[in-house]
Amino acid sequence: MFEKTLVPVAYGERPEELMKIGRVLRSLGASAICLYHVNEPGSFFRGADLSWLTLLSEALEETGLTVEAKTGNGHIASAIAEAALLEGFDGIYMKAKRRWHIETMLLGSVSRDLLRLADVPVFVHKVRPRLPGDGAEPDRRDLKILYATDLDETSNRLLPYVMEFAGAWCHLLHVRGRMADPLAERVRREAVDGKLHAVAEELRPYFERVTLEQRIGDPAGQVLYVSDQIEADVVVLGRKSPAFLSAPMGDTAERIVTGSSASIFLVPQPGSRNAS
């Protein structure tokens, strides 16, 4: 899943912070990392000395990972998404709440654009899981994974990615609308329960513990609520093309990424605008 991971970096990145990230990625199965820096046209830092990138690479190599450093040009998010796709990366790692350039604060979030544009899975690291400060790799058995599934055919494509978190506690969640009458609601609840159990059976060999739940309501709101309730470390979800009407509010994935304290592992699904 993260074997070959692209990590976008910007000037000002601290080596010790990057080493913590490296240990987390190793614990998730990463073996090779590409530090990727984008020179944005018109940027104040364009053409500056890139020796800091070499220093970062050297620091990261100390964690036992194979590291390479690359640079690109153009619109930051588009350049990262394009590089990840063309160079066959398994995923993109982003640490949330970090500004790569002063411009990003003025022009909007690079993260938001990248979530929308990326054709490979994106891991957005948020408050949880905490980066270990003692140099140790995080233990998978301590991780709580919240897998939010639509239970449709395309969501099956997410299962291999969920399985990559093997050894953790996996909580399956399906959020849906309420049916129009009590009988239809009961039938739907039973059908969803059946499907969730089937998915749970597939996942059970890989996880220490698998639990499941279905909820009624707004998908983003419910995912965030459950994530807080179980103190999930990672929320795994698919990303589809946002519906036209969701545009003013932001689509579900975007709202979850914005509001969640847990990290988000977002996998582009078929039907998504850029999904390959």
Binding site: L183, A184, E185
Partner: peptide, 18 residues
């Protein structure tokens, strides 16, 4: 069509549930 009592509240099932 949905077999509920002929009450206005029945029409609210999709938002209020039980």
């Amino acid at each position: 069509r949905r077999g509920m009592p002929a009450l206005i509240s029945s029409c609210f099932y999709p938002v209020l549930g039980e």
